[in-house]
Each structure stands twice: as C-alpha cells, then as structure tokens.
Amino acid sequence: MTDEPRLSAQNMIEHLTPVLSPRTRIRAVTALVAGTTGGAFTGALWWSEPGPLPGHTHLAFAMFTTFCLAWAGYGGWLLTRRVPLFATDRLIAAWLALTASITTTAVLTTVAAQRDTATWPVLTVGGVFITTSLLLTVRAHLRRAALVRRLLELTHRENQ
C-alpha cells in the first residue's frame, strides 16, 4: 500500500478536463456579448418609439428584450463556472432556443392572423426553428445523461 492519496472520481474528472475549454469560452463570450448587445438595442428601440404603441408591439419588444437578456445571463453564468458542467451548458442553451422559437412563432402567428395576412410563412420558418431547437434539446439531454451515467459508474467503482 502506498502513501499517495486516492483521488475521487470527481477529482479525477476535474484534473483531466479543463474547467472551460477554449470552444466553450468562445460560446460563452459570444452569448454574453450578443445577448447584451441585442438587449440594449431592442430596449433602446422600444424606448425610443414615438407615440403610444399597440399592446402586441409592447409584447414583442418585451419578449425580444427578455430573450436577449436570458442569453446574456447564460453567457455570464457559463463564464463564471469553475466546475465541470457535464453538458448542463448545452442543455440550458437548447432550452433557451426552444423556448424562444416556440414563443416567437406563437406571437408572430397571432399577429399575422390578427392582420388577416398569410400565416404559412411564419409557421414554416417557425417550424424549422422549433424542429431544429427541439432536436438540439433532445441531443443535449442524451449527452448529459451519458456523462452523468459515466460519472456514476466511476463513483461506484471508486466506492467498491
């Protein structure tokens, strides 16, 4: 028996993988900058609109500003992580994308229907975005489940 301390599975994983890979760091900075810029731009546009705006316009501005700030928050959260994320970052991003796609499609379809214009272009483009973000969400869930399962296997082996 040696006097070397045994590393737990969690410690091994933390030492084997960098906290944030360069690719993840780039994604985080991009989300933070794009979200902040988009939120500032949308908020400024909303604030500077002359005259009273219809309710659905206020809803659209609020929705777009909220989505931008959510992406900025996601980017900031990701940059501050100092632990392995086990694909939680991808899962959060996928759910943000899916929520934004569904909500945007619903609001734009409602506005198009209220204006008696064709809804098929909105539904077609929205359907593509919803389908893509849904596939990414499923993929993120599967990836996270595989990583967590592997962590549990390593932890179980360690305890035996």
Rank of each mutant, 00 (worst) to 15 (best):
T99D: 07
T24I: 06
R81H: 05
T24V: 07
D3S: 07
R23V: 02
L154S: 10
F67A: 13
G35N: 13
I26T: 06
D89Y: 01
G126V: 05
L151H: 10
G35Y: 09
A60K: 14
G73A: 15
Q10E: 12
Y74T: 04
L135E: 03
A113Q: 07
P84Y: 08
F67V: 15
A40G: 03
T24N: 01
T105S: 04
T137Q: 02
Q114F: 12
G76A: 13
T103W: 07
P18D: 10
L79H: 05
G127T: 12
T155A: 10
T17V: 12
A93V: 03
P50I: 00
R139L: 06
L45G: 08
L78A: 06
G51I: 10
C68N: 11
R115Q: 15
W120F: 15
H156N: 11
A146F: 00
H141K: 04
C68Q: 07
G43P: 00
G127V: 15
L85F: 00
V29P: 02
P121H: 01
T117M: 06
R144G: 02
V107N: 08
G73W: 04
P22I: 00
R149N: 12
L85Q: 08
A113T: 03
P84D: 07
A94H: 00
F86T: 08
L136A: 04
W120P: 01
W120Q: 11
S21Y: 04
F41M: 11
W95M: 04
S48V: 01
T119S: 04
W95L: 02
P50Q: 09
W46G: 11
L32I: 07
P84K: 04
T132W: 09
V125Q: 08
A62L: 15
A146Y: 04
L98H: 05
L96I: 15
A93P: 01
W95R: 03
H141Y: 08
R27T: 03
E153Y: 03
T124H: 03
D116P: 00
A106L: 14
T42M: 15
A34I: 02
V125S: 07
R23H: 02
T104A: 09
L136T: 00
L16K: 12
V29D: 05
T137I: 00
